[in-house]
Amino acid sequence: MEKAKKILVGLVLSIIFTVFSYADEFSYIISTEWLEKNLNNSDLVIIDIRKADVYKAKHIPNSINVLYSAWAIEKSGRKNELPEEDDLQDLITSAGINDKSLIVIVGNSDNITELVNMTRVAWTLYYAGLNKVAVLDGGFTKWEKEGRPTTTEIKKVKPGNFKIKLNRNIYADKDYVKSAIGKSTIVDTRMPDFFFGVSKLDFIDRAGHISGAVNLPSAWIFTKDGTYKSIQELEAIAQGVVGTDKNKEIITYCDTGRLSSGWWFVLTKILGYKNVKMYDGSTEDWAKDTTMPMSKYTWK
């Protein structure tokens, strides 16, 4: 009887997870059901980050379109970088974001890049000082598959009043990462081939990983249908690599600072890790500087 009770509680918790994290009351991973019920909530700002033409063809009612590449720009020869502060302010204002806005990021979920595009935009908004930014579980792909309402009507946006207050606690640069080697848990969120150094993207100067990093691929966050795995599974995966100390500093990175936003988001917003930063420049920046230590052909 006791065992059945435990199983039941576990099951209920797992269902609740898709709507609520236990970090606080706000839902960081929004279900399609919840979003449909709350489409007319005046505090809700639904930001569709897909390309303009696909947005125009069909989108969630009341959503607005601000392309992914507006939030993660190419700067100083590096991909997926933060916009300049004044540009970021403009984006946030023109998206109609206010102090009390609840923001939901919507992208497609057909592949890992599309999935982490949503968390990367969320990270940028948290960096801007917002604190209620969620992603749509399964994205527009799931929304459409479930036959939920769509429109071609473009919502008129009234400029928002939120003034950005940069949250530098979630950002790390090259020098910071260098100083954290041996002290913090540095997490490489790329696939094992890249971590081990047998594969590398063309624009990355050196193969392998930041010396001392551990490997926790962001692709492992999601199920095959592009939704988030259960909280228990995510917690088990994360704890096996980064441990259970939720106060220890963790720095996530990948090739360009996109994949790494996946685990940054899950660790911080879902699993309650309190001190997680993302190295925005990531391997693209690190590997260019030959004085920065990298290891390959080893799991250490």
């Binding site: 601000v66 392309l67 590449s69």
Partner: peptide, 18 residues
């Protein structure tokens, strides 16, 4: 315009204009 050529998408495209 879309940024596919050189990673710099046009501000109008970023705001959903075609």
């Amino acid at each position: 315009y879309t940024g596919e050529y050189n990673g710099i998408s046009d501000v109008h495209y970023q705001k959903g204009m075609m």
